[in-house]
Structure formats: C-alpha cells, structure tokens
Design a protein around this nucleic acid. Structure first.
Lengths: 211, 211
DNA sequence: CCCGCCATCCTCCTTTCGGAGGATGGCGGC
DNA sequence: GCCGCCATCCTCCGAAAGGAGGATGGCGGG
C-alpha cells in the first residue's frame, strides 16, 4: 500500500452513475475520488486543479465528448491514465478511444472488483480491456483483411443526405455537384463500407457511428 | 411522514447504476430500497417476495427487458407503480413504456431530488415525465396528424433484410414470397414511416428502434 | 356475418440506382 | 517534383426500385 492513495477523477454526465462510481470507490484505502465532472470541459478544468492519477470517463457526453476530452487531457497531462467506462462496445467507439490513447476500456456492467483492479492496473501503467472488447478486437483482426479505409468528409456528407432519404439528384442539388459525382462518391463509400447499396451503406455507417 | 416508509425496488443491469440509485435513496426517512434486480426475471421474483410500492426500472436490459417486465409486473401486482429510468428518450421506447402503463419516465441524467420526488409522486398515484419526454410528446401531438401506424411483423421482417443490404429479389427469396409482394410491404412501410425510399426507411426504423 | 387488416399476387410504366471505365485539376506530403 | 488522395466531371447501360391501380384469400372482432 503506497502512503499516498491513488487520486481518481470520475467523469460522467449522469448523476446516478457518478454517485454509483463514487460509492464503489469509497472505503478503499488505496483509492480516493478527488473530483467528479459532468462533461469534458469540467473534466479538463478539474484535471488541472485536482491532478488525478487516473480518470474514469464515459464516452458519450453532451458538450465536449469523451474522445475530445481524452485527447486534450492527454495533451495537457500526459501522465494521467484514462479508463473509458461506457455502456456501449461499438466498433467505432472502441477504436476511437484506443487511438486516443486510453489505458482501459470497460463496460458499465463491470462488477465492482473489476473496476477497482482496473484503476490500480492503469495507475501502474498497465492496460485493461473488458472481455467483450477483447473479443471484438480479435474479431476485427481475424476476419478483417480489408483495412476498411474511412470515408472522406465529402463522402460522409453525401451519405448523411442519403440517410435522410435524398435521391442522388437531390444530393447533387444540395451539395452543388453533379449527379454523377454523387454516384462516384457513393460508389467509393460502398467499397469502403463493404456494402453494395445505399440502404446497407447508411446502416453500416450508423452502426460505426460515422453519421 | 407515514409510519411505514415507501418500499422501493431498483432494476438495472449495471451494478454501477444500481449502486448509484441505492446511494441516492439511502438516508431518506420516507423511502427504503428493499430490493435490487439485474434483469426482468429477477425483478418479477423479487416483486413477489419483497412487495415494493414503487419500482425504478431501466428499459434496456438483457433477458426479459423493461417493457416485458413491466407488463408482467403490472399483471401480477396492479398496485405496484413503475417508473422507467433510462438513458434514452427515443420515440418508440417512450410510447412502449407509456402504453405498458408506467407511472413515470425519467432520464438517467435526472438530479437526485427529481428522483426522490418522482418516487413519492408515483407512490401517491401521480405521474412524472422528464421535461424532455414531455416536449417529445407535445411534438408528437402537434405536427403528427398522421397516426403513424406501426409496421406489421411481416413488414418489419422485410425491412430488416433491406437493412442488411438485400435487394427486393433477395428478400423475396429469403421470405419465400414474390418480389412484388416485397415491394408492396415496402410501400406500406414507406407510408407508415413517412419516407419514400428504402434508405430513409431503414434509418427511420432504426431511430424508432423498430429493427 | 360482414368488415377490416394482413399477406399475397398481378401488370404497366417511369425513375433511379449502381457498375464499368476513363479523365481532369488541385493540393499536400515526402 | 512527383505521387496519392480528393473532388469533380463524362458516357453507356442493365438492373433495380418505386408508383398506380387492382385483386384474392384468410382470419379475427364486433
């Protein structure tokens, strides 16, 4: 047991969840909750004043969301370890978080002990992943020989309009480009998302939270 | 203050949330948390043995989900008041819950005091809605002169295949019906969802959590 | 017992999609 | 200074999608 307990910050927009997390960490001799933030901006401010060792953060928040907050947090304080604690285990969320340099990615259905251990592991420089996340990553490596390039901003713009029900012609008018250009963008999107029609494309994009 | 405090049951699949909720209600003289369940089945069993006055329940749970649990709960114990406490305020969730006869619908970002008051109001026979839910209902009544009939099971079956990228012909083969029948189902779906093509239809259906 | 809803099928016709293939100019990184 | 990515445009063409309109049988509730 170190003489100075781990300083933990909790970031979640739900008071219920913040309460629950704080409760799970009270009474532990080696971990102290030193701050709670309801969004990314608060988290950044509190990180400066409270100097936590580890941050438990939800990804989905109003205002500055999880990934943005993580990036800025790590830019300001490279020594702070961030554990993402979220309800979702979608593809896009996980990879966004991992590429933002988190020390862990846990689901909110994790039991108390797993959370404690994750915080200790993160503080010690280790990494923690929920088992479901782990299998998701394995799945990604195995059947995914295609690098699956991300659609360009312009392509996403087209896709968003398609999702709203626009025809190619309407997209063309809205974006001030020709209909054939719209088709070209869409064709590229199909390739990148591994689908072959617009309906499947919008579904794939929504599942990956691209639109 | 009544001589017997309100008996409250908490139903949520996330330990963190259960802890948080329990913490929010401990120390109150007029409300006691008598049971916690992690899914609908547990909730039904505990309702029988613990006889709560009010149940706080998440809608999204593994196994028997919120709406199913509410319906069976109210069938077994018509006197129990159910408050839905969820992260989402989507159209379909709200209306499913309301038609299941809940006493309240709150979002998890509700502050502590609002939860307390909601439980008291529900126990007293009242109804409570988050303000965001309220405005959602108002929106529904105002610009929605169309009753917006729900798609039939068969129509949803078609729509799910469409969302996976199937063409009408493929849907026809998969469901052992003719392509024209697929088109007819789709046409009806378009009308019901207020869209005019399949891409928009799958988006609308996903947003309303129909597929 | 009928009426309405559902699922199923049909034809005819127009519009749209999506594929194949190729071309151009701009811009940024190495 | 070149290469790659992006956005833009083009033609040709077949395959779908979608609209209009009508028809049938089954099944359940009032």
């Amino acid at each position: 047991m170190p003489e100075h307990p781990l300083r933990l910050m909790i970031v979640d927009d739900h008071p219920v969840v913040r309460d629950g997390l704080r409760g799970m960490f009270t009474g532990l001799p080696d971990i102290t909750v030193v701050a709670e933030a309801a969004d990314g901006h608060q988290a950044l401010a509190l990180a400066r004043s409270e100097r936590p060792d580890v941050v438990l953060m939800d990804l989905r928040m109003p205002g500055l969301d999880g990934v943005g907050a993580i990036e800025r947090l790590r830019a300001d304080h490279p020594d702070i370890r961030v554990i993402v604690l979220t309800t979702y285990d979608t593809d896009a969320d996980v990879s966004r978080a991992l590429s933002a340099g988190v020390a862990g990615y846990l689901l909110k259905d994790a039991p108390r002990e797993e959370l404690h251990q994750a915080v200790r592991t993160a503080a010690a420089g280790g990494r923690v992943l929920s088992s479901s996340i782990h299998s998701l990553l394995v799945d990604r490596l195995a059947p995914g020989p295609a690098p699956a390039t991300a659609p360009t901003p312009r392509e996403l713009e087209v896709l968003r309009l398609i999702a709203k029900g626009a025809s190619n012609k309407e997209v063309a008018r809205a974006l001030l480009i020709s209909e054939t250009t719209v088709k070209t963008h869409l064709k590229h999107v199909f390739g990148k998302l591994g689908v072959d029609n617009r309906a499947a494309a919008v579904v794939a994009a929504m599942e990956r939270r691209l639109i």
